[in-house]
Each structure stands twice: as structure tokens, then as C-alpha cells.
């Protein structure tokens, strides 16, 4: 337990007759990228929702930094340093990119009950937020409302927000989705450096990115992890090839 950042044990969730998550256990260790792959409908996003706290599992536990966070809500888990990006970008659309990141900085400072003092003149908010936009290559777009950003820029902004939270672990749900090859390549390089800041649980369909980045891969099919191991182990696993990679590779 000491050297796992995030530890998920035996999570179960059913929707009616559908076993969306069927006894999933998964670990995230310091400095690693753990990729979660699987065909559409395998339950990847449902699993991410349970880890981040927006869906309550029927049973099982989530430990984060040694603490049982199974009963905590989304906001409480985020405050402990569980940063996530959404499969479909989820931002405050009217706020500029900068203000979206400032919200995370403000949350990290634990100061959302201040009623006075204009935020835009507050350097303790704008400067760290701007630094995160610079890191993610969005500095030039700081003043643009989130709704007016391109698809790829919104994905970058989500990552900038997760960074600004000072996350101790990242849950990224298909960060490459809908990005062009150039964007994917740039983001792959960026995530490669990010792992040293905090480990990443990465749900991704882009196999080039997964094979380039992942230290370990877990394969989720119909709510169950059918295999877990290094890139080579997964590539050569006959069951995985049959269930998932068979046609793709």
C-alpha cells in the first residue's frame, strides 16, 4: 500500500442486468502511466466516474494516498488531489481559459468563501493560472471563452486545470480523442513528462499513444479486467488479442 498512490479494490457496479464494473481492482504507482484500454462499452468511463466519485459503486473501495475515499464526493476527492479530465470536455463555457484555470487555483488555496476582492486583479490567482496555460501551450488563448476554444484546446485546458489543482494523481479519460495527429503527438510528449509530477491513469483509444506511454496496461472487457501487465505482455497475451486487439493489430 505504501507505494501505491491510488488503489482500487474489487469495485462492482450494476445497472439493472448490466454488470458495468464487475470486481475491478487496479493500482496506480508513483511515476507511472497506467493505461486502461478496452472496446467501446467495456465500462472504462463508468470506472473513472467511480474513482472520481461521481458514481457510487455497489461495493468495493477506493484508497487514495493511503486514505479510504470511497465515501467522499467528487469535490472532496478533487481537493485531496485527484485531478481528472473528461471524455467530453467539461468546462465553464462563458469563462475565459484563464478564469477556468483560476477556479482550480482558488480551490487549491481553499478560499471560495471570499466575497470581496476582484479575482481578475488578484495576482495569487492569475499568475499560477497563467503559468499552467503556458505549460500546456494555451497562453496565447488565455482570454478566449472556453466555448470558443477548439476541440483540442479544450482538452489541453482540462489538463491545465488538473495541473493547477496540484493533483497527486491524474485520471485522464481519452485526452487524445478528436485530436489531429500533430496534437496527439504533442500531447503524448507532454504526458510523458507529466508522469514524474504525478502518476496517470490513462483511458485511451489511440494505441500508438498507449504503447508509447504506458508502463502498465490493464484491459477491461465487459466490466472485468481480463489482463494486466507491461506493454509486451499485453501485446502477446492471446486472450487480449482475441478479445480486443485481434483485428486492430
Amino acid at each position: 500500500m505504501a507505494d501505491t498512490v491510488l488503489s482500487i479494490r474489487d469495485l462492482k457496479k450494476t445497472f439493472g442486468a448490466l454488470k458495468a464494473t464487475d470486481g475491478v481492482s487496479i493500482d496506480l504507482r508513483p511515476g507511472e502511466i497506467h493505461a486502461l484500454i478496452g472496446p467501446n462499452g467495456a465500462g472504462k468511463t463508468t470506472l473513472i466516474h467511480q474513482i472520481s466519485g461521481s458514481i457510487k459503486p455497489d461495493s468495493g473501495s477506493v484508497h487514495f494516498l493511503g486514505e479510504d475515499v470511497s465515501r467522499l464526493g467528487v469535490a472532496a476527492r478533487a481537493r485531496r488531489g485527484l485531478g481528472r479530465s473528461f471524455q467530453i470536455s467539461s468546462l465553464a463555457p462563458e469563462f475565459s481559459a484563464l478564469r477556468n484555470v483560476m477556479l482550480a487555483v482558488q480551490s487549491r488555496q481553499g478560499s471560495s468563501f471570499r466575497f470581496f476582492g476582484p479575482v481578475m486583479a488578484d495576482k495569487s490567482l492569475t499568475e499560477p493560472a497563467m503559468a499552467m496555460l503556458e505549460r500546456t501551450g494555451l497562453a496565447a488563448r488565455a482570454q478566449v471563452p472556453a466555448a470558443a476554444l477548439s476541440h483540442g484546446e479544450r482538452r489541453q485546458l482540462e489538463i491545465a486545470i488538473a495541473l493547477a489543482l496540484g493533483s497527486k494523481a491524474f485520471l485522464f479519460d481519452e485526452p487524445m480523442a478528436g485530436m489531429g495527429p500533430e496534437g496527439s503527438k504533442a500531447l503524448t510528449a507532454f504526458l510523458d513528462t507529466l508522469r514524474h509530477e504525478a502518476p496517470i491513469l490513462l483511458v485511451e483509444h489511440d494505441m500508438d499513444a498507449v504503447f508509447a506511454l504506458a508502463d502498465r496496461i490493464s484491459v477491461l472487457v465487459y466490466g472485468r479486467i481480463i489482463a494486466s501487465g507491461t506493454v509486451d505482455e499485453i501485446r502477446n497475451d492471446p486472450e487480449v488479442r482475441r478479445a480486443y486487439l485481434g483485428e486492430a493489430s
Binding site: 472520481s52 467539461s90 465553464a92 478564469r99 477556479l103 466575497f115
Partner: peptide, 20 residues
């Protein structure tokens, strides 16, 4: 204010506010 930022963000996207 900071409070206002959180309040308005919640109007725009509740999921985002919780996620930060």
C-alpha cells in the same frame, strides 16, 4: 469575488465546479 467565480461557474457547469 472568488465566491462569485465559484457561484457563476456552478451555473455554467456544475460538474466542472465539483471536479476542481
Amino acid at each position: 469575488s472568488r465566491f462569485g467565480a465559484a457561484l457563476q461557474a456552478g451555473r455554467q457547469n456544475e460538474q466542472r465546479l465539483a471536479a476542481v
